[in-house]
Design a protein around this nucleic acid. Sequence first.
DNA 1: GTCTATATCCTGATAGAC
DNA 2: GTCTATCAGGATATAGAC
Lengths: 216, 216
Amino acid sequence: MMLFDDVTSEEGSKEKIILEAAMDEFIAEGWAGARMQSIADRAGINKPLLHYYFRSKEKLYNQTVYRVMAYFFGFVLGNVEGKDSFQEFLRAFIDSVIDETAENPRIPLFIMQELSRGGETIRGILSQVLSEQNPPVTEVMRTNLIRAMETGEIRPVNPIQFIMSLLGSCLYFVMAEPIIMELGKQTGLLGNFDRSRFLEERKEAVFTLLYNGVRS
Amino acid sequence: MMLFDDVTSEEGSKEKIILEAAMDEFIAEGWAGARMQSIADRAGINKPLLHYYFRSKEKLYNQTVYRVMAYFFGFVLGNVEGKDSFQEFLRAFIDSVIDETAENPRIPLFIMQELSRGGETIRGILSQVLSEQNPPVTEVMRTNLIRAMETGEIRPVNPIQFIMSLLGSCLYFVMAEPIIMELGKQTGLLGNFDRSRFLEERKEAVFTLLYNGVRS
DNA sequence: GTCTATATCCTGATAGAC
DNA sequence: GTCTATCAGGATATAGAC
């Protein structure tokens, strides 16, 4: 899948080939649905070699979760740093998250799959990912919101509450696209559906709704 | 789990006992993680009897998906019908969806798990569920929004776009609670976390944000 | 309708030659 | 490091007695 450039292992190394194959398989099938044989096939090697490099299915899976989380939150960080106004920050967040997840809808769905397994694993891994960011994406978003409240660009809001509405609004369509398509078909509100035009409309709609919702 | 009262099969019948056991197992483990043996154990019977009543794992699973979808969209319908103003409709939707999914977070996560399997199955089942509603929930929501635009209570918006932001905002916290907890811990923005107080705050925050976002 | 026993295949993991 | 062969357990599903 080639999501990451920042791999510790050498370019083209067997570790990297296996890890990418494992990510593809786990993201497509989830923990319970993934098969070690499929990972070996994707990597072009045989099963025992998988266990030689990574001891078990679980170790391979945890590496996948770590890399997916690091990718997603690193990606967000890269798109919201250095924005001067709240408006600019908000637009950058919405555009980049929707564009990226629309291209790879399986990534947020994979995170949901991991969440449905409990939450202990993902909390530990997320904690590590944030501690490796400098500054952490949480800090950037928090300061952006607080500054906008201080300058009076937006009304006072609880930053966590706003972030949840923002993330939910950005992610819902890409995750639940089949449901939306069916609801749209039933109401006749989608008409001749053009996905890329619809995504542009989606970005504009989320921005307008949320910006109107918080501005003073 | 006892989500449904409207079962066709008799109260306390073996079919119903099995179906409820199957729902518990599939909702907890997903399609790939669910085990026929676990379903049999939950129902207090043995495996062959499972195949006697329902031919295969797949048939049992499809019944579960149908019943979960019928439950969720039926539940929403019951809470948005007969609301006179848009404001009243919006508050009822937010309160009931957040309250319900906060009690059963696994239900939206189960739907996500099914979405990650593709989307064909769920579209077919959703289409059937909507066709069995009278009026369908899609119609109620659509007319509510259009009327609010006509009376001038809200500005012109694309109903589908608004519904996605609404659903995303309501569902994000309950699905991603472990992530939110970790982000909150990292920023120190959650403090002494009291879940039920936080859920009240969540309902208020979503309502205020979205109502401000669309009102004229 | 309900059970025991079993068929058939698949799964993660390892032994051991090279 | 890489392979073939294989283990031990678990998966869905069925045969057949009662």
